[in-house]
Design a protein around this nucleic acid. Sequence first.
DNA 1: GTATTTTGTTTAGCGTCGGCACAAAGTCAG
DNA 2: CTGACTTTGTGCCGACGCTAAACAAAATAC
Lengths: 398, 398
Amino acid sequence: MERGRGALGPALELVHTGRAPTRAVLTSELGVTRATAGAVAAELEALGLITVDSRPTASAGAQGRPSHRLFVDERGPVVLAAQIHADGYRVALVGLGGRIVATAAGCGTIPADPAHVLAEAVAAGSALLSETGRRCLGAGLAVPSAVAEPDGEALNPLHLAWPPGAPVRELFLRALADAAIPGVTERIGFTGNDVNLGALAEHRHGAGRGARDLLCVASGHRGVGGALVLDGRLHSGSSGLALEVGHLTVNPEGAPCHCGSRGCLDVEADPLAFLGAAGRTPGPEGSLLHQAVDLLRNDYADPGVRAAADLLIDRLGLGIAGLVNILNPDRIILGGLHRALVEADPERLRAVVADRSLWGRSGGVPILPCSLDHNSLVGAAELAWQPVLDDPLVVVDR
Amino acid sequence: MERGRGALGPALELVHTGRAPTRAVLTSELGVTRATAGAVAAELEALGLITVDSRPTASAGAQGRPSHRLFVDERGPVVLAAQIHADGYRVALVGLGGRIVATAAGCGTIPADPAHVLAEAVAAGSALLSETGRRCLGAGLAVPSAVAEPDGEALNPLHLAWPPGAPVRELFLRALADAAIPGVTERIGFTGNDVNLGALAEHRHGAGRGARDLLCVASGHRGVGGALVLDGRLHSGSSGLALEVGHLTVNPEGAPCHCGSRGCLDVEADPLAFLGAAGRTPGPEGSLLHQAVDLLRNDYADPGVRAAADLLIDRLGLGIAGLVNILNPDRIILGGLHRALVEADPERLRAVVADRSLWGRSGGVPILPCSLDHNSLVGAAELAWQPVLDDPLVVVDR
DNA sequence: GTATTTTGTTTAGCGTCGGCACAAAGTCAG
DNA sequence: CTGACTTTGTGCCGACGCTAAACAAAATAC
């Protein structure tokens, strides 16, 4: 009787990622008949997840009957996304399509206590939910650390004041339970590394759309992180520790690293390294990342700054070339300081990567700056949306 | 009416990989009812792909009615697998389950001409088919070179006398067409890198069974290759060039490599490097790989050989640790000379990898020798079997 | 020998999707 | 403006592929 149950999840994902702007496109993308696609769209609309605009469209331009347009429901449910970083936290309510509905930030009054910071973040998110009156279907958290699977422990929260091995997923779940957010009653607090989640967000809604093998590299405030999205799914390794690229050697005679080696990407291509190469000492206000990005953008004409940028691009390119030889991605996206570097001089980085990677064809891989604001936050939301994308019918029970 | 069409492919794959020894297990693995599993098994038997042993089993030991045993049909169809290596070629007829039914080898009379070598190999395979009278459903080829997608060109057949960029897939298809093998009328000549295909074979039938993220590293006669199997599927990158691990730097002051760098895995951990480290000069007869493996296995008591083995293990471990940090696999399998190295001293390699990889948990990843004879050949057969595994009904038309 | 457990088989029924015919909504040509 | 054409949406029917349930079969346990 009810048509289109099996295709419900794929259909929602297509609308969610913007790949199904109309019902006709949905039909062809799903590979089903128009009848089935219509039933699927109607079902998703009944669930309150999408809206079908059946009014005659203004001007289609093309021949034939204009197709009904499909939108993510702007008044539909949201998920709660939280991100922890060196300066504190940021929370947001994120709807389907990766749209940030509301956001708030705080500094975290007791930075050394993860439970306390998470409780504050969740409280801020809960306040957003109360203010907006939106229905919440889940929650996701991004942290600037490798997150070990399956336990969800933050292994190296180096530039947080947290103890290594903090059980962030458990603490996040507990904070959610304590906050007693309506609708968020089960264990639906997903947790991941911020660069990983940023990559996921870029793949679905940003500069990574359409890529099959997407590699992301991003500097945080300290250190360098990587992420890999394969066939639309995050590859975080068997225990969540993949793409820890910070300790690739890019300068054999370089500075010593806490890992015991020297010349690691972590110490040769992060904001502190850039400030040092430019002969600046970090100031007291503003994060290292902001200081470095501001310096790069405002004083790129300064020869010393320019030389520092060139040096970092060369080192970064060496690291990326190594990754290209191993992973052979079809697109590369850079975040944090690296985004600013590739924006400052796109050609130099492409040339270095092409020169140091083995095959000309791999060297020709596109390298783009990331394109989403708060992509880690949006990625955390993607994690929370995933159960709904897998089976949209789960929304009826909650 | 006909039950169990959609589950046909997954069911055959379960039997093929040995994960469904009985109908009861098939039922639970597929997640379907006994009725459906029974229909699926009957259909596969009717297709001549598996046999269902419904005779009362000798002694089950367990309570309840014994389940019918499922076997790959030993008299069923086969695929033609071919492997090109430095010394010539090897061909085999491979049935479901990765079982080699018949095999033959030759040296290749005009090694510099890929078309000629491939024609000889296909002719040898065709002869095997005539002798055995088996039905052939496809053909696969393994070559010791990166194979670029989507064109199927051998980019670096370094230790073959082939020109770089030889269009091996096209040449293989042409050789198959020229041989006019009954049944192999369409374009079903699949081609891949030998280490990649070996990894696929190990994952399905060998030491890699059950691994989710499997990393393989293997030395050929010259150089080092890598492969990655993720969620049961080969990850060969967007253009087939992933896991070209030969140019990871493992010894910054090492020997120069043709890639322009120095101390690459290719020149620091291959059979030639081992013979050199042991103070031996390569002899004229036998491949470098065989000479190195023989030396290692026969003269391991010799302090010089032992020291050379330790040195290569240390370098190899450094390279593997780098890969572990990037890929976070849950199992590692070694082939070629590296297999012999890990068999000679399993603990040393594990210790090096654990020491040089970032996380203790990743350092604890199991490192095993490969377990299949001719795994590249079996992997080439896997490539050819894949269409049948995707939809077993394709066998009825051919 | 009877009860219990587990597996295989048969039958009925239902849910999901494709196919088809028809209606609807636009463009294009004159 | 009108009619032909193109493309999209919808309702109806049937086929296919599965589940559910009852029953039969083959072993062990007591």
